[in-house]
């Protein structure tokens, strides 16, 4: 029966890490716009050679 102590610990850690992940996603704004990504995913990746690779921004919003 002692295994329950471990299981309780594991379940609590697991659940709180999900809570943490949810908070982080919320803070990053992943739930702010739930429509545009569904459009964006359908765009073909461009084959044009003139394409400039987007430079990574040092500070994201």
């Amino acid at each position: 029966m002692e295994v329950i102590f471990i299981l309780i610990g594991v379940s609590l850690v697991l659940a709180s890490s999900f809570l943490f992940l949810f908070f982080r996603a919320m803070k990053k704004g992943q739930f702010d716009d739930t429509y545009t990504p569904s459009v964006r995913i359908l765009f073909d990746s461009h084959k044009n050679k003139k394409t400039v690779k987007p430079k990574p921004s040092p500070k994201t919003k």
């Binding site: 545009t36 964006r40 765009f43 044009n48 400039v52 987007p54 430079k55």
Partner: peptide, 21 residues
């Protein structure tokens, strides 16, 4: 699509994101 590809029109724009709603 077009607004998110603005960087191809002008290389000084390096990111554009649209919020459709």
């Amino acid at each position: 699509w077009l607004l998110e590809n603005l960087h191809r029109l002008n290389s000084n724009i390096f990111e554009s994101r649209v919020d459709y709603v």
